[in-house]
Design a protein around this nucleic acid. Structure first.
Lengths: 212, 212
DNA sequence: CGATACATTGAACAAATTCAAAGCTGGTGG
DNA sequence: CCACCAGCTTTGAATTTGTTCAATGTATCG
């Protein structure tokens, strides 16, 4: 059974795995499909086992505010489900995804008392707190310049891998601002182009000043 | 023993309470004292049992970004302590406070396996996720106008209780912007003054539009 | 080539802060 | 009793940061 292979459930005995199998279904999402929408309510937990799920909020002008991308294995949607409140954000498949959907009532009655499971839940919640704490730091403390500088230092490759419009979306800014900022960093010789026309860091120290 | 009275530890038996007593100390903070600073590391958990603790982050220009105020009984600082990362925010006593400081190593070795305690931890973490999720909604989705409208509808009394400079700080805006926005809402007859010169809501529906 | 999508640049605009000045107000000492 | 002071609050003007809109440039791929 595939559940057995998932680290999240490794602490379960055979009987619990059987139970889990009965209270869960495997969802397959195509790129662009929504696992759930902000504002919806749910009685299910979701475990991402394959693919990438993008979480975002939508503001009053319809703009998407990027929150996080989840990769396997991640428990998703536990806040809304445990607390019986609407989802605070929308979950969208970035690529084809496989997600286990678990009935929360069954789960909480049968598996939550398992101490391995509750430790996994604690770990997952700590991860969420960390993610949200980072979002707050990113969006409230750093300037747009700082966020761009941070991404340049921490993951320069992404600038060659995906379109700058998508990078701008991940950074919660516009392609125009991203372009202007990169131009500015180039003029200041903090970054430059290598022989393949790919961005490279020339002055990491100066870039770090923008976000540390 | 005072520990017994604290709901957070109500699930502990006498022996565990004894252990807890030995691994913890009671801190008394005066108003303005810091429980910990953003960036510090810690090997302790804190449980607020009396008073009010304000959490804030500091941006590059020295401005304080208000995150949350904790009231008893609240577990504070568990992200940094569990994850062994620096505190993401500063914790300051708003009034005289009493805080139990618990050695994390002892706690995790002796009490974390207690399933009542781990459920309390889960509850506390869910609360944190909810708080941070609300902060993100507040600061990233709502405009300053929306935040002011929301506070007016949800807690109009506070405008008579504390200085507008402090309210501005809680709303992460400036006294000037708060004043201008209140003036605007008055002009539009969304709010007005009652016989005691206290603010009152005149048109809740219109105010809600700013934040819903 | 030419089409199309992406990237860049300029100019106007928007939201909110900052700085400076003036207006209130409530408690205190003469 | 009331004038005055200190600490809010309000108002105006300039500034900042970043977005939006429009136009132009550029690269790639059939």
């Amino acid at each position: 059974m595939y559940l057995k292979k998932i680290d999240f459930f490794s602490g379960l005995d055979e009987e619990s795995l059987q139970k889990l199998d009965h209270m869960s279904t495997l969802l397959k999402l195509d790129s662009g499909n929504k696992l759930f929408y902000e504002g919806e309510r749910s009685e299910s937990l979701y475990v991402l086992i394959d693919g990438v799920i993008r979480m975002f909020k939508t503001d009053s002008k319809g703009r998407q505010i990027f929150i996080h991308q989840f990769t396997p294995i991640s428990l998703i949607g536990e806040l809304a489900t445990f607390e019986k409140i609407p989802f605070p954000a929308t979950a969208e498949a970035v690529v084809k995804c496989e997600v286990i959907k678990i009935n929360f009532l069954d789960f909480s009655q049968n598996l939550l008392k398992n101490s391995d499971i509750s430790l996994k839940i604690i770990q997952s919640l700590l991860e969420k707190v960390k993610i949200l704490s980072n979002v707050i730091h990113h969006e409230l403390i750093l300037t747009t310049e700082g966020r761009i500088a941070k991404l340049l230092v921490e993951d320069i490759e992404i600038f060659a891998q995906i379109k700058h419009t998508k990078i701008a979306a991940i950074l919660n800014t516009t392609p125009e601002t991203l372009s202007r900022t990169l131009t500015k960093f180039k003029q200041m010789s903090y970054i430059g182009l290598d022989e393949n026309n790919a961005l490279q860091i020339l002055d990491k120290h100066s870039l770090k000043i923008f976000y540390e």
